Simulated scan of single mutants.
Amino acid sequence: MVSLLLSLPAIFSALAFVAATIALALGSYLGMRAIFGHHGDSERRELAGSVIFRVSALHGLILALVFAQEIANETEADNAASHEARLVADTFYDLERYDRETTLQIRTALAHYARQVTDVEWRLLADERQLDSAAWAHWNAAYEGALTLHGDTPRHEVLRDNILRNIREISSLRRTRETAAFHGAEPLFLIAALVGVVLTSAAYFTFEPTRLNILLLSIFASYSGLIIYFIIAFSNPFHAPGMASPVGFERILEGGIGQLAGGGG
């Protein structure tokens, strides 16, 4: 159900989350009034206010912490992809500096790797949370080719060391992207967030369901629902609507790397 909602345009999926949270909040409030009566004496309201303050504070803290964690995960995946793209470009041009003709096959493998990541692997990480085997094959071809390079001169030796180090680091960054895709939103957090909405809303049962009170309760639920939506949207950095785009790879494919990669891998 959640996946279906997230597949909708962002504005509609956000409104659906907000509407569901408002319904949950108002249902909790009205259900509590139906069970415990409508008496709103000052003693009850004072106790309810104390409970509301404490529960809502904890609820807000949980939302803030998890939201910050999801943003950090998104940033880490984005930074890893950008760094990976820079390494691909640095390695590609270091191979040209080593010897343009000798390294053509290695550079072609790197170019196809960049194309495969952009055109195929990004969607695979979004839908199946796994790396693409064809991209691994292109990486492996580049790595095997780099291992055959010889450090015949000090210049070649330095370039070979840089090339091998960069290609190995590309593998590590690929794993970082895969880990970010598997991160996801914790089910226990979702339970805690929804329970926070229910308990906070239910604690208002001592207050009359006037138009103003219903509006204020709806505002609280709307904002809570929106934050929950953002957290779920950012739980997979490669899936819309909160996806990180492969901008770094798209940029390097605009130049010579893209020309060598052709239309696909």
Score class of each variant (00 low, 15 high):
V2K: 00
V2P: 00
L5Q: 01
L5W: 07
L5K: 05
A10N: 10
I11S: 13
S13K: 05
A16S: 12
F17P: 10
F17N: 08
A19Q: 06
I22Q: 05
I22N: 03
A23I: 15
A23L: 14
M32A: 15
R33P: 04
H38Q: 10
D41N: 15
L47E: 14
A48W: 05
G49Y: 12
G49S: 14
F53K: 14
F53W: 09
R54D: 04
L63K: 06
L65D: 03
Q69W: 15
N73M: 11
E76W: 10
A80N: 03
A85L: 06
V88L: 08
V88A: 07
A89F: 10
L95Y: 07
E96M: 08
Y98N: 06
R100T: 13
I106A: 13
Y113G: 06
A114V: 05
D119G: 01
E121H: 04
R123V: 03
A126M: 06
R129I: 08
R129N: 12
D132H: 04
S133V: 11
A134R: 14
H138Q: 09
W139Y: 10
A141E: 11
A141N: 08
Y143V: 09
T148I: 00
L149C: 03
G151F: 05
R160L: 09
I167F: 01
R168A: 09
E169Y: 02
E178R: 12
G184D: 15
L190H: 12
L190W: 06
A193K: 04
V197P: 02
V197N: 04
L199Q: 08
A202F: 06
A202D: 04
A203F: 09
F220H: 06
Y223V: 13
S224M: 10
Y229F: 15
F230M: 13
F234P: 01
N236A: 09
P237T: 01
A240R: 14
P241I: 07
P241T: 05
M243K: 14
V247Q: 06
V247N: 07
G248L: 02
F249D: 05
F249G: 03
G255D: 01
G255H: 01
G262C: 00
G263H: 10
G265T: 13
